[in-house]
Computed example of a mutant assay.
Amino acid sequence: MQLRECIERVLTTYLTAAKDDLKEHPTAKFLRKDFRDAVASASGDHGRLIFKASAGQGRWVKGPWVGIFDQLVTTSAQSGYYPVYLFREDMQGVYLSLNQGMTEAKKNYKADAKTALRARAANFRAMLGAQINLFPDLVIDLAPTAPSNDTAFYEAGNICAKFYPINQLPPEAQLIGDLSSMLLLYQAILEGEVISDSNNASEGDEPVDLHYEDGTKFRFHKRIERNVRLSKDVKKLQGYVCKVCNTNFEKKYGALGKGYIEAHHLKPIAALKGTKVAMNPLNDFTVLCSNCHRMVHRSGCLEDIEKFKAEHYHG
């Protein structure tokens, strides 16, 4: 199904559907699967991207959405930042918005959540500069019927956006082109954050001969390893014994060390760019104790643990 068809269907049917029971409703199912899959298909080669949509849980949301999440940033609409299709409450149009997780902001900033979201949005815009020109809507109107509605917080969280009114939906090719451009902005923010990290004090484990671009990729590498969801999957599949020195923290420290190990990403640094980063927890990672993990990073043998053992590990 095409994006234009999906958008038009939601705009013309949602208000009527929201008068019925949400459970098993065909409009809710359409959003969560068909619309979500159409966005995934239009996004091309996803790599790290995952796609989710919501019409509500238990009751209909005032403004449904379909979001795109880079797993190095977030895996849900609750935190981080992400591109998202946001529908106005009155269904007079939809925004393609680069937005932020409001649940995280509410938890951290309480009554000042909207202020914090607006401030962070301004920082993101400064980071992107002229790249946001294709998405001119810095202020969006989701027609919230109450200031406590989710739509009101999404208004505050908007970084940049483009509006598609119900009576002027663009052709499919333009919708896909806009989505591709939005995904480039998304990637630019992530890369900008990694570059900012590279300007901070060194943690002491970077190979000393890294050039600037490789240094940036190196920090992508470390960000992948720190992905909580991935790390849990890696440990569950590969166990908790270091693949270099055979350290088992539970044997050494008892209950304190139970379930402790670190996940190490094996993808070569040269490949850590764009959205095509392999993240298979069984094939693209190994598990290491804290000491071996840091020494692997320091050695530069990120992708070849056997080489590291042969050249650097002396038991």
Rank of each mutant, 00 (worst) to 15 (best):
residue 7 I to V: 13
residue 8 E to Q: 14
residue 19 K to P: 07
residue 20 D to Q: 15
residue 25 H to N: 13
residue 28 A to Y: 03
residue 31 L to W: 00
residue 33 K to Y: 10
residue 36 R to A: 02
residue 38 A to F: 05
residue 41 S to K: 10
residue 43 S to C: 08
residue 46 H to E: 09
residue 51 F to K: 02
residue 51 F to L: 01
residue 52 K to P: 04
residue 62 K to C: 00
residue 75 T to K: 05
residue 76 S to M: 10
residue 79 S to K: 08
residue 82 Y to H: 06
residue 88 R to Y: 06
residue 92 Q to G: 04
residue 93 G to D: 00
residue 95 Y to Q: 00
residue 96 L to Q: 00
residue 98 L to I: 06
residue 100 Q to F: 04
residue 100 Q to T: 02
residue 100 Q to V: 02
residue 102 M to V: 05
residue 103 T to I: 10
residue 106 K to A: 03
residue 107 K to V: 04
residue 112 D to S: 09
residue 117 L to Q: 01
residue 119 A to Q: 10
residue 120 R to T: 08
residue 123 N to Q: 12
residue 126 A to M: 11
residue 127 M to V: 09
residue 134 L to A: 12
residue 144 P to Y: 03
residue 149 N to P: 00
residue 150 D to W: 03
residue 150 D to H: 06
residue 155 E to I: 05
residue 156 A to W: 00
residue 157 G to C: 03
residue 160 C to K: 01
residue 161 A to P: 05
residue 161 A to H: 01
residue 165 P to G: 01
residue 167 N to I: 04
residue 173 A to E: 08
residue 175 L to Y: 02
residue 175 L to S: 03
residue 176 I to F: 02
residue 183 L to T: 05
residue 183 L to C: 07
residue 184 L to R: 11
residue 187 Q to K: 12
residue 189 I to Y: 05
residue 189 I to R: 06
residue 190 L to E: 05
residue 192 G to S: 08
residue 192 G to D: 03
residue 195 I to Y: 14
residue 195 I to H: 09
residue 196 S to A: 12
residue 199 N to E: 11
residue 199 N to K: 13
residue 201 A to I: 09
residue 201 A to L: 12
residue 201 A to N: 11
residue 201 A to Y: 10
residue 202 S to D: 13
residue 203 E to G: 13
residue 205 D to V: 12
residue 205 D to P: 06
residue 208 V to L: 12
residue 208 V to I: 15
residue 210 L to K: 06
residue 214 D to S: 14
residue 216 T to L: 07
residue 217 K to T: 13
residue 218 F to K: 04
residue 220 F to C: 05
residue 224 I to R: 02
residue 225 E to V: 12
residue 230 L to F: 09
residue 231 S to E: 07
residue 232 K to S: 14
residue 237 L to A: 15
residue 237 L to Q: 14
residue 239 G to F: 15
residue 242 C to P: 01
residue 243 K to V: 04
residue 245 C to A: 07
residue 246 N to F: 14
residue 250 E to A: 15
residue 252 K to N: 11
residue 252 K to C: 08
residue 252 K to V: 14
residue 255 A to V: 15
residue 257 G to S: 08
residue 263 A to Q: 03
residue 264 H to P: 10
residue 265 H to Q: 10
residue 266 L to S: 05
residue 274 G to D: 09
residue 275 T to A: 15
residue 280 N to W: 08
residue 284 D to A: 12
residue 285 F to P: 03
residue 291 N to V: 11
residue 291 N to Y: 14
residue 300 G to D: 06
residue 307 K to W: 15
residue 308 F to H: 07
residue 308 F to N: 02
residue 311 E to R: 12
residue 312 H to R: 11
residue 312 H to W: 14
